[in-house]
């Protein structure tokens, strides 16, 4: 468990929220946001975009020692804008273009001038969508919850 806690204490950086949410934006949403930018930013590629594998670990018994469960495809990209801001993009799957667009928006978010655009166009809608999906799943699952009742039988 200690390893998991070490990570939890690691997550105060606000950029974690940004990168996590951008990974949940669809490529169409990212492309559409890019088009609405006043000026398409020019950037240089630092790494990728590239697709590779991350091995997913589980824990024995659910909370014990780690073991390798299997791999997943991951696409990632790192870019830097002309002013030196570096952006990272990651996501499950093989969509390298989406990973690169995520990296661009991560870089844009880091300056006050563009932060609100990224928030309004991508991050807040993604957060709302995620909340709605989570709620819908929970409500659909809750409808399948068994309500036990006891039938009294035999002598009164």
């Amino acid at each position: 468990m200690s390893a998991a806690f070490a990570h939890d204490s690691n997550t105060h950086d606000p950029r974690k929220r940004v990168i996590d949410l951008l990974a949940r934006c669809s490529r169409d949403e990212l492309e559409a946001a890019m088009v609405t930018l006043e000026q398409i930013p020019s950037y240089l590629r630092l790494r990728g975009p590239e697709t590779g594998l991350v091995i997913v670990k589980g824990r024995i018994g659910g909370g014990g020692s780690p073991f390798n469960l299997g791999e997943t495809t991951v696409s990632r990209a790192a870019i830097h804008l002309e002013d030196g801001r570096v952006g990272h993009g990651f996501r499950l799957g093989t969509d390298r273009r989406a990973a690169e667009l995520s990296a661009v928006f991560d870089a844009l978010w880091q300056a006050e001038t563009e932060r609100s655009f990224v928030e309004q166009t991508l991050l807040l809608p993604a957060e709302r969508k995620q909340a709605l999906e989570t709620d819908a799943l929970a409500r659909e699952t809750a409808a399948t919850k068994v309500d036990f009742f006891t039938m009294v039988r035999g002598e009164d």
Partner: peptide
């Protein structure tokens, strides 16, 4: 197909206790 891809690394162990439960 998987043999054609590089390995980026390994994940933090998944937390099944924090699962968004469907069943």
């Amino acid at each position: 197909y998987r043999t054609t891809l590089p390995r980026f690394g390994s994940s933090v162990p998944i937390e099944t206790g924090a699962m968004r439960v469907e069943r």
